[in-house]
Amino acid sequence: MLLGTLIYGFVNSIILALVALGFSLTFGISGVANFAYGALYILAGFLSWLLFNSVGLPYILAAPFSVLLTAIAGALMYRFVLLRIRGMVLSEVIATFGIGLSTLELFKYLGFIGFEYTLPVFIDYSIDIGQVTIDMQRIFIVVIGIALAVFLWFFTHYTKTGLRFRGIAQDERTALSLGINSDRVGTLSVSFGAAYAAIAAIVILPLGTITVDHGYEVLINALAVCIVGGLGSTGGVVIASFLLGYAQTFTATYIESHWVMVVPLVAILAILVIKPSGLYGEQKELEERI
């Protein structure tokens, strides 16, 4: 029983990390809190469902194609909306939240409710660890989650674009003075975040059904992990994912499963009271503007 809780808690933690990585990545680089994140996640889910079921693409193509389309959607959102309100944090939040809200509600309006939309699992097989049975999809999620985190680290440390990302993240003015196109890096950062959301969606959604409401849940989970871990801190995201992941799993096992959704909300409130910048976040000092 405890072993099962520990294993499923681990999987749940990785799921949270996967969901939050993209949000954290975008915020860490360009300072944009992308409140359309949950909508992008659901968009990727429905896109791959449509490409697979309506267009008839093999799933091995439908999945990566929907990641690409979601990344493009993120880039367009930055280019045509966020770029105009760059630096005005409140406007950015309202704009992304508005886009997210209207995307999700559009899905509802178009009739993407009621029917059980599901994505296929990659390998329909399960294995036993001790007395605990775990399906391959969950193992796959763990593998992908770790792979994406490792990839992100290598990307930001060893590639040209990655180094530019870090430059912009650390000091945008310096980056500009060294010839980095901050608009392009900003576009890429939102696009990358969207792609991460899409990959998360494609590996996680086969565990359940795709619903519009799930988009809000994903956003809340991503926010909770990032706020607890410290906005923009990848290490913080990992730690917070495990804290929240295990908290949720233990809540489900020992209290009651419908209390699970309260965990991220309580965590947000608690961290805001105890350490508002999050576990690993730094409260940035007010900088001089000129």
Partner: peptide, 12 residues
Amino acid sequence: RTFQMVRPFYQL
């Protein structure tokens, strides 16, 4: 241009 108040990427 260089900056009067130095602006390196401090984490690098």
